[in-house]
């Protein structure tokens, strides 16, 4: 994985763009994609629309990198634009109170940092769920992503409720183990164990 963690300031990102470094910019996009998608979707509740918002923000910035020079930190900058645009697009559909926009603009850098870490954990958790054994993954997703009760899952898959409980219990155990023990999840020196315990 190409390291784009060092792109922190607006000037650094601007350099990437005016040097036409599409690869670094693409990796930069990749590193933020899931997290910003989650942020946008928390307002829009529409995955495809959220993806469009996030993609457009990156394209717009690529096309016009000159305002980036004055941006101190890119992370809060991206979060604010994405949240604002999501709210705008929502406003077009519903009459949304102006105070929602204010709330988004009042998010401090620290609050955005917390939001970012939370989204990062959600995204990592999601990619770990994808690695679960097939049947286990299927059952876990039906429960967690589609909000089905064990009873419904059991009927749908023609298995016993006990089997569903065992699969979910096993999935939780595997996921916990990945978070606590897997070193790749602790890259960037971040302890996700710590993060989980913060949320306790």
């Amino acid at each position: 994985m190409k390291n784009v963690d060092n792109i922190e300031t607006g000037l650094e990102l601007q350099n990437v763009i005016i040097n036409n470094n599409t690869v670094a910019f693409t990796y930069f996009y990749k590193s933020y994609f899931s997290k910003l998608l989650l942020a946008s979707n928390s307002y829009l509740k529409d995955a495809a629309l959220a993806e469009e918002v996030v993609q457009n923000v990156f394209l717009k910035i690529w096309e016009n990198p000159y305002q980036l020079g004055e941006v101190k930190l890119v992370k809060p900058y991206f979060y604010r634009i994405v949240i604002n645009l999501s709210l705008n697009s929502l406003k077009r559909k519903k009459s949304l109170d102006q105070h929602h926009l204010k709330i988004a603009n009042q998010l401090t850098d620290d609050e955005i940092d917390i939001l970012d870490e939370e989204n990062e954990v959600i995204a990592l958790l999601h990619s770990e769920i994808d690695k679960l054994p097939a049947q286990c993954k299927k059952i876990f997703k039906l429960s967690r992503f589609e909000g089905q009760k064990y009873k419904q899952i059991a009927t749908q898959l023609n298995i016993s409720e006990k089997t569903v409980e065992n699969h979910i219990g096993n999935a939780l155990k595997i996921l916990r183990g990945r978070f606590l023990n897997d070193e790749t999840l602790n890259k960037k020196g971040k302890g996700y164990l710590k993060l989980i315990s913060i949320f306790l």
């Binding site: 989650l38 954990v121 959600i122 958790l125 967690r144 992503f145 996921l175 949320f199």
Partner: peptide, 8 residues
């Protein structure tokens, strides 16, 4: 937290 990733 895992259900928050449904959209992904």
């Amino acid at each position: 937290m895992s259900s928050n990733g449904a959209v992904l």
